Amino acid sequence: MQGEYGYDVSFVQLQLGHEHAATTSLYTPAAPDYRARELDRVLTATLSRSNASLAGSPHPKEPR
C-alpha cells in the first residue's frame, strides 16, 4: 500500500523499525485535503468510465 506521497507504508515501517503497521500509521497521517482529493479522483475515474461506456468505447484506465 502506498501513502499519500507515494511512499510504500511497509518501507516506512521498516525504515522506522516498527514491528506493527499500526504503529507506523500513527506517524503517517493523511493531509487535511486528502479525502477531498481522493473523492475527486474516484469520481473523475467513474464518470470517465461511464461516459466511455455510453459512447461504446473501451474503458479507459483509472487515473492515479
Score class of each variant (00 low, 15 high):
residue 1 M to R: 06
residue 2 Q to S: 06
residue 3 G to P: 15
residue 3 G to A: 14
residue 3 G to V: 12
residue 4 E to C: 05
residue 4 E to I: 13
residue 5 Y to E: 15
residue 5 Y to P: 14
residue 5 Y to R: 13
residue 6 G to C: 11
residue 6 G to R: 05
residue 7 Y to L: 03
residue 8 D to T: 10
residue 9 V to T: 06
residue 9 V to C: 00
residue 10 S to V: 04
residue 10 S to M: 02
residue 10 S to I: 02
residue 11 F to P: 01
residue 12 V to M: 05
residue 12 V to L: 09
residue 13 Q to M: 11
residue 13 Q to D: 10
residue 13 Q to N: 15
residue 13 Q to E: 13
residue 15 Q to R: 09
residue 15 Q to S: 09
residue 16 L to I: 05
residue 16 L to H: 05
residue 16 L to K: 05
residue 16 L to W: 01
residue 17 G to A: 01
residue 18 H to D: 08
residue 19 E to G: 05
residue 19 E to T: 09
residue 20 H to F: 07
residue 20 H to W: 10
residue 20 H to P: 06
residue 21 A to F: 03
residue 21 A to L: 09
residue 21 A to N: 04
residue 22 A to Q: 12
residue 22 A to P: 11
residue 22 A to C: 10
residue 24 T to I: 01
residue 24 T to E: 00
residue 24 T to N: 00
residue 24 T to A: 00
residue 24 T to R: 00
residue 25 S to K: 00
residue 26 L to D: 02
residue 27 Y to T: 08
residue 27 Y to F: 10
residue 28 T to L: 08
residue 28 T to Y: 03
residue 28 T to N: 07
residue 28 T to P: 07
residue 29 P to C: 03
residue 29 P to N: 05
residue 30 A to R: 11
residue 31 A to Y: 11
residue 31 A to V: 02
residue 33 D to E: 12
residue 35 R to E: 15
residue 35 R to D: 15
residue 35 R to A: 12
residue 36 A to P: 14
residue 37 R to Y: 11
residue 37 R to V: 10
residue 37 R to T: 12
residue 38 E to M: 08
residue 38 E to Y: 11
residue 38 E to H: 11
residue 40 D to P: 12
residue 40 D to H: 14
residue 40 D to C: 07
residue 41 R to F: 11
residue 42 V to Y: 11
residue 42 V to G: 03
residue 42 V to F: 13
residue 43 L to M: 12
residue 44 T to G: 04
residue 44 T to K: 01
residue 44 T to E: 11
residue 48 S to A: 15
residue 48 S to W: 09
residue 48 S to G: 09
residue 50 S to R: 13
residue 50 S to Y: 15
residue 51 N to F: 13
residue 52 A to I: 14
residue 53 S to Y: 15
residue 53 S to W: 15
residue 54 L to T: 15
residue 54 L to Q: 12
residue 54 L to S: 13
residue 55 A to P: 05
residue 55 A to I: 08
residue 55 A to K: 08
residue 55 A to F: 07
residue 56 G to E: 09
residue 57 S to N: 11
residue 57 S to E: 14
residue 57 S to D: 13
residue 58 P to D: 03
residue 58 P to C: 01
residue 58 P to R: 00
residue 58 P to H: 02
residue 59 H to I: 04
residue 60 P to C: 01
residue 60 P to V: 04
residue 62 E to H: 06
residue 62 E to F: 08
residue 63 P to G: 01
residue 63 P to H: 05
residue 64 R to M: 04
residue 64 R to W: 06
residue 64 R to N: 03
